[in-house]
Design a protein around this nucleic acid. Structure first.
Lengths: 241, 241
DNA sequence: CGATACGTTGAGCGAGTTCAACATACGTGG
DNA sequence: CCACGTATGTTGAACTCGCTCAACGTATCG
């Protein structure tokens, strides 16, 4: 939950008064084991979930068993604001690891945020960032080579984790097997392994079961066609609005 | 502009009173020629544009000249609601054909829609649909073969055009060269041509300079792993909220 | 210490790319 | 209305990146 607060503060300077509203909202906690489905395809959504521990994934499963992971939801991320119009999910949301979620009623949540201009802005910002992440994913799988995709993706994970943890480190925890990377990046497991080996041999990064250590961020950024500035929010002068 | 109205009515039953507010909003018209940039990378956005004629595209251009088209904006589509928090564009928005746009001030627009619960819901729906389109694009380029991508994309264009035109036809106008398809689908121009030839030889579709004629929708849907139901909104009981 | 899941490596294959030539449509000026 | 130049689309041949299948390592956890 601190990650969530850190995240919205990264976009808009919400004060304790704003946050108080959120903290007082009725919520429950749900825990899921790896592989469990949280929201199924076509299920109506009327709750809002905040990830507090573990990794969640959005994915589409094709008839012949192929899977495309659309994106990962990390601690501090939430889903699905679209629920407020009563939409149904067009994809599955699944626990990638053991996951702890804080769950709100979507309408409660909406009413709470509408009371605060700053909170509402913060949520718009997070929504804008989500879309940026989706667009980046399209560029990755559409036009980047396997090595570029991996490098780019590692950098994105690193950036997102830095925002929600508040710490800028060169280690990217990766609590899921490479098969998940493969399904996210539109590659085969084998080729993910080979591409990582190739990046290691260039001394750009180091891998372990725990995650990936970024050894040469600058060269990695160049190889990945990754422009960190694209993802940084530009401060909003709320007072001026 | 009728396409725009048809589109939001497709999601929520907005009445003439709601629409009246929109029609009275101060707006201007802008015209762009093919290839002209409408919004550049990193440009602050403070306007809301509705496409009234022609095709617009969102794209990211990589350093070495590669281009990934993120999606197309067709008549009735609008961009960019994110402007209401003063975000900057993380991609370029470019006229694909000669384009006519209706332009609003983002803040004016926001105030107008906030007055009507139905209008606000309608815009949420459109935003939800946009995200669905982005997710679908990720699945396409991530896990579908070239033929599947093309078939899937044609079906999506057909669905979107049907909603905004109000007519369900089997002809999909395509006012851009195949190179645009290639950059949207993460393929080479040559392979787009070959894949289309292959689809033609199976009597699934027919092509001309004007667009694509769907000859066997059912088989095309099967080949494309395309589930039309995923994109249909489920009626919302607004009264119940 | 063994079972099991995960990661790595090799060999062969195949979908999609590149380069190049050719074909067809289209717009413009004569 | 034709003639030409340019855009776009098609086809062939060679190549390459990433895939599949299969075997073999190596963590990890009871």
């Amino acid at each position: 939950m601190e990650q969530f607060v850190r995240r919205i503060k990264h976009y808009v300077d919400v004060g304790d008064a704003d946050l108080h509203v959120l903290k007082n909202l009725r919520s429950t906690t749900e825990v899921y084991q790896p592989g469990q489905t949280i929201v199924s395809l076509n299920e109506p959504v009327d709750k809002l979930y905040i990830v507090t521990e573990g990794w969640v994934l959005r994915a589409r499963y094709l008839d012949d068993g192929r899977r495309q992971i659309i994106n990962f939801l990390l601690p501090g991320d939430y889903f699905d604001l679209m629920s407020i119009v009563g939409a149904r999910s067009d994809h599955s949301i699944v626990a990638a690891t053991t996951v702890r979620l804080t769950v709100f009623d979507a309408q409660d949540f909406l009413r709470a945020t509408q009371g605060s201009h700053r909170l509402a802005s913060a949520f718009w910002w997070v929504t804008v960032q989500e879309e940026t992440i989706l667009r980046q994913q399209i560029v990755r799988v559409g036009r980047l080579s396997a090595r570029e995709r991996i490098a780019n993706f590692i950098l994105e994970l690193n950036r997102r984790q830095a925002i929600s943890s508040g710490r800028h480190e060169d280690f990217v925890p990766l609590p899921v097997p490479q098969a998940f990377l493969a399904d996210a990046l539109g590659l085969s497991i084998v080729h993910v392994s080979r591409s990582l080996t190739s990046l290691k041999s260039k001394d750009l990064l180091q891998t372990s079961r725990k995650g990936i250590e970024i050894l040469d961020r600058q060269r990695l950024i160049e190889l990945a066609e990754y422009n960190p500035a694209l993802f940084e929010p530009h401060p909003v002068a709320l007072a001026a609005q």
